[in-house]
Write a protein that binds this DNA or RNA. Structure first.
Lengths: 102, 102
DNA sequence: ACAAAATATAGAAGTCTTTCTATTTTTTCT
DNA sequence: AGAAAAAATAGAAAGACTTCTATATTTTGT
């Protein structure tokens, strides 16, 4: 499968969980530490840790340690590139995949 | 969980498979019948049928029968609304969820 | 160095997803 | 009506995902 689909699908999958999508929304105004995010959900700490890892591995979120706390923030460049890619996939275009013969 | 997250996540999940994302791309220029889409992948007919159902149930794709064939096309309005919602989630905003107290 | 706080890792159980084979349904053409 | 073509449904097996409990790691303050 073409890399654009596998790469984009990986980001889509990461944010396709309602909880993780809400976390992205929470981070859209700025960074938050894990303990603050945890307060907003009825999940255990290891579950959140796993969810944050999924977001980080998809390139959606960046983490940084400050003492005992880990602060998470959106990877704005990556997210905006992803949003553009999605737009391109949704829209009709001159170099559309459906015009190609394989 | 707030409905905007569950609804949006449902669309995200539907297109979070590389194969289904490619199908969306193929449909972005216009409708295609199942048999044409099937040619582009190494999957069986029932597998494609299942994938198209997932896309239809998420509201991403519309189907129409013409004789023996089913033609699929993008639900452009839904997709564009979804794209806007995603933009809103990604962007900083005045009514950000992180400003609220629960 | 030790205790406490915050987070990560390991491992397991249950659920959901993917994709197959076999079969059925829908429609057309003879 | 019967055969053929296209698509849908049923059911099953394998794999991936979610989320828990228990435990380990990292860092700070005493």
């Amino acid at each position: 499968m073409e890399q654009i689909y596998t790469d984009t699908a990986k980001v889509l999958k990461a944010i396709s969980d309602p909880k993780r999508l809400k976390i992205v929304d929470m981070l859209s105004c700025g960074e938050l530490c894990a303990c603050k995010i945890l307060e907003a959900f009825h999940i255990t700490q290891p579950t959140l840790s796993h969810d944050m890892r999924v977001l980080i591995e998809a390139g959606v979120v960046i983490d940084r340690r400050d003492g005992k706390n880990i602060y998470y923030s959106l990877n704005a460049d990556r997210l905006s590139a992803f949003h553009e890619t999605l737009k391109h996939i949704f829209e009709e275009k001159a170099d559309c995949i459906c015009h190609r013969k394989e």
